[in-house]
């Protein structure tokens, strides 16, 4: 299990160096914060691999280069395989003391990139894969992904006479990667930044593959005020629709186990993508929440 003596990450210990700066992400973008904080922890000796998606679209527009460390845009499906290649190449060239870190969105991870991610985990390649989950294809204009939650309105899961937003549930990516026997996996939220920073710090030292799934709200796609990104990300955890967990050495741990969950209704109604939901929809989401927590308490023994 985790070394209990592991130093608690303090804000003051973080580097002043900004390695993701001057990017063109929308104001209040949760994904860009997730990326910026990760590079603060991982530092200058990082090779960032970023597939098609928001972060590549806003970070590398010739001649404006927002990454301060080495970075490359990968093929959409190839985040993990390009990471493996970068790590293997650097290793073969005798380059020491580096991180190969990927930043892929929810679609790039759970949909088009899942094959390559699966392969990299299987090889136990020493890479850090960060999924910044904003719950839809935001860069292309808010289309449904495999991580869009049930009921969410997107441009391809519209609200009409027959459908009330997405009918799929979020793929359980954290458990999917854990089922591979991954060396380290964690969920996080930009609403709980210290927890996220601690997990990044842990991932730095993992000899093998790390996967961090960070919940990263998107004001444009979700329909809330730009200032509320952190609050929305925190609410998602507090109301039990997102969770903070880790998987290490074959065991699950829950890092935040609220005795009482806050209102799902308030969380949903605070975002325009959910405002069409009716009583029965909210009840269905509540039932899913219940089932999820019951299951993980039982299965993870937490």
């Amino acid at each position: 299990m985790r070394n209990q003596a592991e130093k608690k990450t303090s804000i003051r210990d973080l580097s002043d160096r900004e390695l993701f700066y001057g990017h063109k992400a929308c104001p209040g973008c949760g994904g860009s914060l997730a990326l910026r904080l990760a590079l603060k922890v991982l530092g200058e000796r990082s090779y960032a691999v970023v597939p098609a998606g928001c972060m590549s679209a806003v970070g590398f527009i010739f001649p404006q280069m927002a990454f301060g460390c080495n970075a490359i845009i990968s093929t959409f499906a190839g985040t993990a395989s390009m990471l493996s290649g970068v790590a293997a190449g650097a290793r073969a060239l005798g380059i020491k003391d580096f991180h190969a870190v990927g930043f892929a969105g929810d679609g790039g991870t759970a949909d088009i990139g899942i094959q390559a991610l699966s392969g990299a985990i299987d090889r136990h390649d020493k890479i850090i894969y960060i999924c910044y989950d904003n719950e839809a294809y935001m860069n292309t204009g808010v289309q449904k992904s495999g991580l869009t939650p049930i009921g969410a309105r997107t441009t391809t899961s519209p609200v009409g006479q027959r459908l009330r937003g997405s009918v799929n549930r979020k793929k359980p990516m954290f458990e999917i990667v854990a089922a591979h026997g991954i060396d380290y996996a964690a969920t996080a939220s930009v609403g709980y930044p210290l927890d996220y920073l601690r997990k990044l710090e842990h991932a730095r030292h993992v000899e093998g593959t790390s996967y961090i799934h960070v919940f990263s709200p998107c004001p444009v796609g979700w329909g809330y005020e730009t200032a509320d990104t952190i609050a929305v990300a925190k609410n998602a955890v507090d109301c039990g629709l997102w969770y903070l967990a880790e998987f290490s050495e074959g065991r699950f741990a829950l890092n935040h186990n609220p005795a009482e969950l806050t209102s799902v209704r308030d969380y949903l109604m605070g975002q325009s993508r959910f405002r069409h939901l009716q009583e029965e929809d909210i009840n269905a989401i509540l039932a899913q929440r219940e089932a999820f927590w019951t299951r993980i308490h039982r299965e993870w023994r937490v």
């Binding site: 691999v49 990968s74 190839g78 395989s81 390009m82 290649g85 970068v86 190449g89 380059i95």
Partner: peptide, 11 residues
């Protein structure tokens, strides 16, 4: 993709 990644560090 892996070959591109490796080439991108000079391998």
């Amino acid at each position: 993709s892996a070959c591109i990644g490796a080439s991108a560090v000079g391998a």
